[in-house]
């Protein structure tokens, strides 16, 4: 079990390093929902290039590394299509309305002691824990 914590810590450091590069070099906050949200909204293409290249690295590097670490590369996502679609819609709407997700509010917000980042993180973890308790432990759906 403790091996998974170590991989979590190492992976976390890499995530933080990526966020630090994006901040110190490009002057931007590495928030996954903001980057993708901006890409899919209408707007000038030249401003989107940086975000597009970011997403290429984000999707491409796990694709290249997957053969080396095959056991880790499994999502175990539910096969229940209704749950998948409902969850995707909620994550998409929620992160854009709140203007951030686990990376933007969580990693980048907490590390600068942003009140909004800390409050958002507490709220989405509490809402998530209650939802999981309801759908898994009471309803048995997930």
């Amino acid at each position: 079990m403790y091996v998974e914590w170590i991989w979590g810590l190492i992976g976390g450091l890499l995530i933080g390093l990526g966020a630090a590069v994006y901040l110190l070099c490009n002057g931007r906050i590495m928030g996954a929902s903001g980057i993708l949200g901006n890409l899919v909204e209408r707007g000038p293409l030249d401003k989107k290039m940086e975000r597009l290249i970011f997403v290429v690295g984000l999707i491409g590097m796990p694709l290249l590394l997957r053969p080396l670490i095959a056991p880790a590369a499994q999502t175990h996502l539910t096969s229940n299509i209704s749950i998948v679609i409902l969850a995707g819609l909620l994550v998409g709407v929620g992160t854009r309305v709140a203007n951030g997700c686990t990376s933007g509010h969580g990693v980048c917000g907490i590390s600068r002691f942003s009140l909004r980042g800390i409050v958002a993180t507490v709220i989405y973890i509490l809402a998530g824990a209650l939802t999981l308790a309801l759908f898994r432990n009471v309803l048995g759906l997930i």
Partner: peptide, 28 residues
């Protein structure tokens, strides 16, 4: 911030994915 984070947390729990991992795991 409050309503958005509640909705996000609900979706996050239902599938176990947030925006970063949803993109990173696209190939597998």
């Amino acid at each position: 911030l409050v309503v958005g984070s509640v909705l996000f947390g609900m979706g996050w729990a239902l599938a176990g994915l947030c925006p970063g991992p949803a993109m990173a795991s696209l190939s597998y």
